[in-house]
Write a protein that binds this DNA or RNA. Sequence first.
DNA 1: CTGTTAGCGCTTTCAG
DNA 2: CTGAAAGCGCTAACAG
Lengths: 323, 323
Amino acid sequence: MATSADVAQHAGLSRSTVSQILNGREHLFSEETIARVRASAAVLGYRPSLAGRTLARGTSDIVITLIPDVTFNPRLRELVDIITADLTAAGLTNLLRFVGSEESLHDTLLGLKPFGVVSLAPLPPAQERRIREHGVHLIAQPREAQVAIDEEIGRLQARYLTDAGYDTLAVVVPVAVRERGFALPRERGAKAWCSEQGVRVLPTLRVALERGGAQAAVAKLPPRPVGLVAYNDEVALAVLGAALHQGRRTPEDFGLIGVDNSSIARASTPSITTVDYDIAFSGHAIAGLLLQRLNVQDVADPAHQVTDRLRVVAGDTTPAPTS
Amino acid sequence: MATSADVAQHAGLSRSTVSQILNGREHLFSEETIARVRASAAVLGYRPSLAGRTLARGTSDIVITLIPDVTFNPRLRELVDIITADLTAAGLTNLLRFVGSEESLHDTLLGLKPFGVVSLAPLPPAQERRIREHGVHLIAQPREAQVAIDEEIGRLQARYLTDAGYDTLAVVVPVAVRERGFALPRERGAKAWCSEQGVRVLPTLRVALERGGAQAAVAKLPPRPVGLVAYNDEVALAVLGAALHQGRRTPEDFGLIGVDNSSIARASTPSITTVDYDIAFSGHAIAGLLLQRLNVQDVADPAHQVTDRLRVVAGDTTPAPTS
DNA sequence: CTGTTAGCGCTTTCAG
DNA sequence: CTGAAAGCGCTAACAG
């Protein structure tokens, strides 16, 4: 592995010259010197050692993105891809780490002296504090903001169903504990809308994503038309299959709306009405915050920003707009 | 941030003593010295600097796991979690990176001087070479092995369906390009089985995972019973919904088998027969290889190992075994 | 059993 | 515009 000293020697210059030129101070040097350095670096296949650089600078070019322990849907991946691309463009390296619900963050991550840490889900306060104490820039949505967004999602789903004519709704959530953090606020949001509008709400259906789980849940529904607010497309799909199997028809006997605008929702027959959100926006926002060393609080209330980015994608499980 | 020098001073010892004790050479020191060092380290909240250590050792404790650009299903996550856990237990830090289909591996990753790189999908030969040239230990399944496994999966699916009594089969694959690498071999495996057994195979159905995509594909099926070999559970689900909607019944009119044993396959109504694989096994195998600095070739033919780990999970889309 | 010493590869003043 | 020198935090010989 070639070192910067090798490059310097090969080019017949000093190490500092090489370092300067390779680190954005090229305007201080002659065309020819620059060319020589670049040529030598290329010939030797020089790659700066991150360790050396980190030691000298006190901080590395690495960003750690913490990924929550929920269903890893394509949207989440899209979000990660956008953040990674933006950071790469800025010369940073985004590395990922899955975090279990309550698992403690590994100390080694901090030992990396990362340029920053991005958490895609709210972090326990203790961990948040620890990261900040280490002088590491942390971007994480405060739990309240996340909750506000999810409530808004639930509210939007409920609103869409009542607008579509259902006068009785029910919320459907998975039993899986790990989805709880997102499911609870969504359920709350949907119920809040209903109580504001005087819409009747049936007891929440909890479906186990296992064989027969959805059937058992759906069997509890009354025979009359009901609008179902599903936690996500996966749950919606399970419910859809079970309901159709029991002879219920959509959208006549039941309406259904999921969340994620996933391909399974679109590719399903009938296709499922679902909520889409502009994830690209969030991705760029997160990367921008990190690059400008800003904090989430420094910008306008994120809940408002994001609710503007929610949108319903109509499918076959709700009546076509009568417009 | 406390350094090892701080710890040494606090304990009234030399830095090397501290370093030795904190790096597994404690058997050389007195009980009391050890206790003092540990106490001081704890008091000061000392965390070794990865950069310093890497520089001194020439290699870091980091492992980079490359994740392919395919649907990130729960099984894949499980695999990653297992690898991470095993590596953590060995004192290594596993960091993840998504790799796009043909996107070039970022050089910075090599600059990290990682302890090793794990690729969860076969790598282009050029990249593989480059990683190895940098003296980095790479664990990646050779493309042939991956292909062999996928062929075996397709073969198993086809076999299960013919055993279940279907005398005509059709393969169903997604049109998405990024799944191609896995889809082609599976299709080939299924067809190979059919031609060996003299089973009739219909033209492969290509389904777009978009609205109406599955309907269009299913409409091409003849009215008589056919066994469908689906690329994965997602595709199977799309096909299932479309076929039921068109009035076909399962398992009488069509049989269906997916791959992944995902929750959506189990939670679907009717539930989908699917192929499960022992991913924990692979995870431990990968971590073990890395820790022992072995290569994939050093162990027995992986294709054979893995085919033993495949198993069909019966669902409602194939007839119950008549035993 | 303990301390001294010499780097690992890089960046960054600072003097020329 | 260029080069010398110092030091980031740690490890590992080696001498005591």
